[in-house]
């Protein structure tokens, strides 16, 4: 069909995350088990599965992702996305983390 036009304006991940309420736990509840595994990883599934841009890998860096844990929606997708089971995933402590208002 030739009239297929996107009706929804472009929206950035920042716009989306701006709608989400968080309580900063003050420390990351996410990590990598073994940085050497990340250094050898070329596929970086963590970056493509995460809906909240938590995981980014600097192409000029050491291959170990930087983790914006404060964006985390606690969905758990990265736990499964990493084929090396190298994601360290815990719950944020004492009420910290995402606070959904709708859910």
């Amino acid at each position: 069909m030739s009239t297929a036009q996107p009706h929804v304006p472009d929206v950035s991940i920042e716009d989306r995350l701006y709608t989400v309420k968080y309580r900063d736990a003050g420390e990351s509840h996410l990590g990598v088990e073994n940085p050497d595994v990340c250094a050898d990883c070329t596929t970086n599934e963590c970056t493509s599965v995460c809906p909240a841009a938590v995981w980014t890998v600097d192409p000029d860096g050491d291959g170990v992702p930087s983790i914006a844990y404060e964006n985390c929606l606690e969905c758990g997708t990265c736990r499964y996305g990493c084929p090396y089971d190298n994601v360290e995933w815990t719950y944020p402590k004492t009420g910290g983390g995402v606070v959904f208002k709708q859910g």
């Binding site: 929206v11 716009d15 989306r16 995350l17 709608t19 989400v20 809906p51 909240a52 929606l73 969905c75 758990g76 997708t77 736990r79 499964y80 959904f100 208002k101 709708q102 859910g103």
Partner: peptide, 9 residues
């Protein structure tokens, strides 16, 4: 208006 973005497995 977008009022919440969320995700879960």
């Amino acid at each position: 208006r977008r009022i919440e973005y969320s995700a879960h497995v």
